[in-house]
Amino acid sequence: MADFAQTLMTTLAVGSLYALIALGYTMVYGILKFINFAHSDIVVLGAWISFTLTRWLFPAVGLDAHNPDSPAPPLWLGASILIAAVVACSLIGFVIERFAYRPLRKAPRLNVLITAIGVSLLLQNLGQLSFMFGPSPQKMPALLSNVELWRLSLPSSGGARNVVIGLVDVMIVGTSAVLMIALEFLVFRTKIGTAMRAVSYDLEASALMGIPVDRIISYTFMLGSALAAAAGFLYALKYPGLNQPAHTTWVLLGLKAFVAAVIGGIGNVRGAVLGGFVIAAVEQFGAYYLSSSYRDVYVFALLIAILLVRPSGLLGSTVREKV
């Protein structure tokens, strides 16, 4: 019982991270119909920019960033770092789209994929240079105090065990929820959102209707990158041992988030959120109850199973092609 509850808690926290990243994939895919392989690298940038800013700003509030057990700074510092990372990554997202993807707008989609891979390689290896972020993992200084909000003692086989719910987990779930609701509002209730949906529905027709397609695509990229940056920031909060930018862990994180987007029905904003939680649940409960060796297998096996039953994902609508 205790272990079940603990695993459920982890699922919620990890699931909301997956969901945030999956949203970026799904939005770009919805409009440009290509897998943005560089998206996971934006997450990395978000995490490492937050780290660098924290290192700079800690002395300003009289704390030692190099002491791993230093107390947490005031909350506004964390919030401003989050905003700064989001702004920086949006700009980077804009630049990438402008110079690496836009020139290929008329080329086959697969070819954009290759530039995406190139951009991803570039970001990884630039980040790994010693004067950038370096090749070693670093400790993200704690931005939130390590407070336990609840510690429940639940009965379990072999005695009672504690279920620990920390401030960090609640903060992650809360921030993600706020961002997702904001996105939902943006996409379905504003003019820009309407334009995005129009472009995603039919690019050429919306251009004819006077929608500035290029600008809308830029907005979409910036929005996706902003969510990725937020995910990177929260990721660094939850897992303070930050892996170096070229580590395979980030690729796998991006891959799983993409799987989440596909499971939910790619191009579907709500589907991406649902997919994120489904993936996290399968991963965490599979690793706990079955075997931790096959953790990645559960994710991909579920993906294949779902796609074979519902080829357009859980919430995706089947698009009937007219000839």
Partner: peptide, 22 residues
């Protein structure tokens, strides 16, 4: 036969990743 484009891509990708773990 059932899947198109990127959906197929992600299934083949999943196949490779499963094989890697196995």
């Amino acid at each position: 036969l059932r899947l198109r484009g990127d959906y197929l891509a992600i299934v083949t990708l999943g196949f490779g990743e499963i094989l890697r773990v196995v």
